[in-house]
Simulated assay, not measured.
Amino acid sequence: MHRTYSMRASRAPTASQIQNPPPPPSSTKSGRLFGRGGIGGLGHALRRNAAGAFGPDLAKKLSQLVKMEKNVMRSLEMVAKERMEVAQQLSLWGEACDEDVSDVTDKLGVLLYEIGELEDQYVDRYDQYRVTMKSIRNIEASVQPSRDRKQKITDQIAQLKYKEPNSPRIVVLEQELVRAEAESLVAEAQLSNITREKIKAAYTYQFDALREHCEKVAIIAGYGKHLLELIDDTPVTPGETRPAYDGYEASKAIIQDCEDSLTNWVTQNAAVSAKLSTRSRTLSQRRRNNIKARTEGGAGQGHDLSGQDAPLNDRDSWVPANQHKEVADYEVSEEEEDDDEDEEDDIHASGSHSMLDGESEQHQRGRNTEPVAA
C-alpha cells in the first residue's frame, strides 16, 4: 500500500511569510460555542439586517459593509473547511481503485487539502482589510456629534431670531456656532484624510492577499494536471491486464516540486501582472503628477482651527467629538456586539443543528502521513 506524502508536515515558513509575516487569526475564528461550522444563511441575514440599525447616521452605511464582510469571511471559512473534507474523502475513495488511480487521487487529495489551508490563511489576511475599514467607521461615528451640534445651534439661532430678534442669547449662540463650525471643520478634515489613508491601506491588504492566494492556487492547479498525466487512460479489452504502475516516485517528486514552488513564491515573482494601456498609463501618471504638484505647492494642507478660541465656561460649552457620550456609548456597544455576535449565532445554531458533532482539531487526511524528504 502506498503512503501519502502530505505537505501538511512540519516545515519552515515560506518566503512570502518571511517577507510579510502572517496576521493573527481572524476574529471570526474564535469564541464559538459550536465550533466553526456556524449556521450559514440565518446568521448572515441577522448580521446584514441588523447592521447600521444603531449608532450615528453617518456611520450606518459603512457599518453595514463591515457586517457584510464578516458574512463573506464566514463563508470563506466554510469553503476552506469543506475543501479539506473533500480532499480527505477523495483520498479515501481512491484506496479501493487500481494502483495508478489510487496513487494519483491520494496526491490530488494532498493538493486539494493545501488549497483549503490557503483559503483558511486568506481569511486571516482578509480580516486585516475588514478591521481597517472598521477604523473608518469609528471616525465617521465620532464626526456625527459635531455635525449635529452645529445644526442644533443653527436651528436655535433661527428660532430666536424669529421669536425674539433682540434676545442677548443670539450673540452667545453665534459665538458658539463659530466654535462649533471650527470643531466641525477640523473633524471633517480629519475624516477626509483618514478615509483616504485607510481605504488605500485596507484594499491594499485585500488585493495583496487575493493575489498571493490566486497565484498559489494556480500553481497547485498546474501541478495537479501533471499528476493526472501519470494515469494510463489507454482503453483495454476485456481480460487484458494493464502494465504495472511505476509512477510512485514521479508523483512524490511532483508533490515535492509543488511544495518548493509554494515555499519560494514571493510577490516580486508573481506570474500575472496588470499591464496598463498607453492611454491608462498616461492619464494615471497625469493624476499622480497633479497630486504631487499640489502637495509640493502647499495646497490642500488644512489649518488646525481647534485652538483658535477658548471654550465658553457655561453648560453649553463644546467638548471634543470623541468625548460625546453618544459616541462613547456607540463604540462600546459596537465592541460588545462583535464580542457577543458569535455567541448569538451559536444560540440560533443550537435550535437548527442539535445533532452537530464536535469538530476534530487534527488535520489528518485518513492515511498515514510521512513528510517528504527534503
Rank of each mutant, 00 (worst) to 15 (best):
S306I: 01
N269L: 08
A321W: 06
H213R: 15
S261Q: 13
R287D: 07
A218Y: 06
S306K: 05
L262S: 01
R211Y: 04
Y223H: 13
D246W: 00
D316H: 12
K252P: 00
L210S: 12
V272H: 10
N313L: 12
H226F: 05
Y245M: 03
Q308T: 07
G302M: 07
N193M: 11
A209Y: 00
S280D: 13
H324P: 00
E215D: 08
C258K: 01
N264I: 02
I194M: 14
R315K: 15
G300E: 03
Q268K: 15
V236S: 10
Q268N: 11
K216E: 06
E249F: 04
A253Q: 13
A271T: 11
S284W: 06
V236P: 05
E240S: 10
K292M: 09
N290P: 00
P235N: 07
A209H: 01
L210Q: 09
K252Y: 03
P320Q: 05
R294G: 08
G300A: 02
G247N: 02
D304E: 04
G300L: 03
S192P: 00
R294A: 15
I231Y: 03
A209P: 00
L262H: 02
S280T: 06
I255Y: 01
E249S: 13
P235H: 04
S280H: 11
N264L: 09
L276Y: 09
S277V: 02
L312H: 11
K225M: 08
N289A: 13
Y245V: 01
A270I: 02
Q308A: 13
R288G: 05
T195W: 05
A293T: 08
V217E: 04
A221N: 15
S306L: 04
A201M: 09
P235D: 04
G307Y: 07
D260R: 15
Y248E: 08
G222K: 13
